[in-house]
Design a binder for these strands. Structure first.
Lengths: 182, 182
DNA sequence: ACCTGAACACCGTTCAAGT
DNA sequence: ACCTGAACACCGTTCAAGT
């Protein structure tokens, strides 16, 4: 990549982080480009879709989350606790920016024509594995599908986007509903 | 009201219903006005905010829902069953138009500066009463507040907006989590 | 190879002028 | 008293022209 292009890329990610943190993932792309000191066309060249830009600002955090997921899949962990830890972490991730929960729902869990990003696929896969382990250990109901459970987690993130302190309590409620023999 | 104004009002409500049903509550107001055969200013004269128009299209359904609420508060009903019936009905109401769940969350459950509409106040009040009865009968946990529970119901509506057949199952999961001595 | 910025499309909202 | 529709502001997205 040419040096000026590299610099533009970094400036865009940096200002996107600020804008997303302040206004949520629906922040004006035009304003991001302006504050990063580039024209709008340059933003679109580097990030064809808004999702590309969102993912770029979250790349480290996503890597961490996926790392945690792999860790929790080790057989040393109690299946239900591992599932619980994972869903809480996913919930917090979805709360990073206002509107990120909607992005997650749309791109991972609703039938989108586009291929889901590797990030989203990994999220769903990890959840599936942890749920399967919890089901195999006979600790949770089989009443709800993987997708439905992950949907509910994003829904909780969405519902508590202006009061994130309530998020964990609502997820605990969901886990109570899932759990057998409480 | 002048005869032409009356007619414009009705035409606007009628076309708003169609547009909301097709595109959700975020449908273009301009397009609604155009198809109703009036200019945009006329729409704003009758319905200063989008919420006013949304409520107008739902007035009958809202009346029905509130009627059901009053009915369920009669002491003849089992407290938990009444609560369950009410939350399922509220859930279905929130699913009427795509995006209505978001409206409900914003105007009823998040700190909005504006005074909530009588409709929303009634919704929250009825839920509070039914929850209190269920708690007094010792059938549900006291771990979650009224607002949090209603939030979760709107969240489920939001999460299943493209797959409404899953909505009731997810609400059942929530009720399982709430219920004591399942 | 990359960037600029005008151009187009679309929307919400207001308000002076008209009836 | 009510309606019209132009005007303004804001945004996303594309693409011809420039370097």
């Amino acid at each position: 990549m040419r040096a000026d292009a590299q610099r533009n890329y970094e400036m865009l990610v940096e200002h996107a982080k600020l804008a997303f943190a302040e206004h949520g993932v629906d922040a004006s792309l035009d304003a991001i480009a302006r504050r990063a000191g580039v024209a709008s066309g340059t933003l679109y060249r580097h990030f064809p879709t808004r999702l590309d830009l969102v993912e770029a600002t979250l790349s480290h955090q996503i890597a961490d989350l996926i790392g945690l997921g792999h860790h929790l899949l080790l057989p040393t962990h109690d299946p239900f606790t591992a599932l619980s830890t994972w869903l809480h972490a996913t919930l917090h991730h979805a709360l990073t920016y206002r509107g990120l929960s909607a992005t997650l729902l749309n791109t991972t869990l609703d039938h989108t024509p586009e291929t889901p990003s590797p990030w989203h696929k990994e999220l769903l896969d990890t959840t599936t594995h942890l749920l399967n382990r919890a089901r195999a250990a006979n600790t949770i109901t089989t009443e709800a599908t993987d997708t439905e459970i992950l949907k509910t987690v994003t829904a909780i993130a969405w519902a508590t986007r202006n009061a994130p302190d309530q998020a964990d309590r609502l997820l605990t409620l969901l886990l109570n509903g899932l759990r057998y023999g409480r």
